[in-house]
Design a binder for these strands. Structure first.
Lengths: 203, 203
DNA sequence: TGGCAATGTAACTAATCGGTTAATTCCATG
DNA sequence: CATGGAATTAACCGATTAGTTACATTGCCA
């Protein structure tokens, strides 16, 4: 094991455990065992449990906001921007399912004790969406809309989709359930984007 | 204090604490203090923490599914049914914010340890939506669609909206944030319903 | 090679937390 | 009023858990 990677390995493993069991449900001894690192090493690299949590969230949230912003800024038309916004968010969320779980948990807690850096990343995504909607509105292609609702539509729908992937796979295929198309994240993002954009376009 | 009242009082208080802090984050001593009951009384009325959690979730989820189903069945046209489905779900969710928090947490955990009765109530709501979409499809008013995505759109969006109410109220009103219309749950549900229905109607 | 950051080992602590116990109080009924 | 079961209580217990400590070991690099 190279020394540099240990801190990173702890972060990755901690992210998974925080995502699956939550902050209180994550036990430091289990974490040490899970990632094959001695408990003292965890405290050596990350001061304590709370700091480790902050570090993990920052490491998860920052690249996601970065990716969405970068992808959107490569576009110029608001309609394209919005579609890329949604599709990129879907892709990066599916790439790292920890994000959806942790975000959902934090939202459930009222976001009260959510680390500031992580919250800022979510705000970056929201503000980006607001800029897209406003530029579209000022260009006359979008009608006036509530950015927050659209933000929640994107995040709520796609996060639930990503989170439920393992659940749906283990579900017994009853008659009723098998009618559900087993769509992937790509088509889910397409549907969300198409639905939202259709309702935004001025008639 | 009659027997029924104490048990009910514990359930209500436990629901709030489970919603805010999660299962592991809810401490039985705190719960006892919060609802002004001796800790042993909790164990007297509800066997243990896990049973209390099951009881609380069943008490929360069942009336919500009941209300949605009852409201939808009072309608006949699929379009009306879908709108009522969404608006009723929004109303009952807003009435009891514990529901949204707990559901989000359970989804974040992969729904693995979600009590069976609670999961069944969610399935009732999903199956109801599937029946609405299918009857609309067979009547030629709805195009073919993925019920699961629509289910997630409804639940994800509205749950996030309800959950974020306290957060948004305590947020400092920065220049950017004050542009967000402070819409209530009614108008949010209207937007969700209108958006979804518009994308479903055959052209 | 010497020094230093990093890692491992393993025991320890102080506190927390779920759950229990035995005693006590409340209250309806005969 | 007496009685017996339901409900409540204070105190306690054992297990778990976050975090610490002391020390040995490894590997990198100047």
């Amino acid at each position: 094991m190279t020394r540099i990677d240990t801190s990173r390995k702890i972060l990755d493993c901690a992210s998974r455990m925080f995502a699956q069991h939550g902050y209180d449900g994550t036990i430091m001894d289990d974490l040490a065992e899970q990632c094959g690192v001695n408990k003292a090493s965890i405290y050596y690299h990350h001061k304590d449990k709370a700091t480790l949590y902050d570090n993990a969230l920052t490491a998860i949230f920052t690249p996601i906001a970065d990716a969405v912003i970068e992808a959107v800024e490569a576009q110029v038309e608001p309609v394209k921007q919005l579609r890329v916004h949604i599709k990129t968010f879907a892709r990066v969320t599916a790439d790292n399912p920890c994000f959806a779980s942790i975000l959902m948990r934090e939202m459930a807690s009222g976001g009260a004790n959510m680390p500031v850096p992580a919250r800022q990343q979510m705000q970056r995504i929201l503000f980006l969406l607001m800029r897209i909607l406003q530029s579209g509105e000022s260009q006359g292609v979008f009608r006036s809309s509530d950015a927050l609702i659209i933000h929640f539509m994107i995040i709520g729908t796609l996060n639930l989709f990503v989170i439920s992937i393992p659940l749906r796979q283990t579900l017994p295929a009853t008659d009723q359930l098998e009618q559900l198309q087993n769509s992937n994240i790509e088509s889910a993002a397409d549907q969300v984007a198409t639905t939202i954009i259709a309702s935004l376009l001025v008639k």
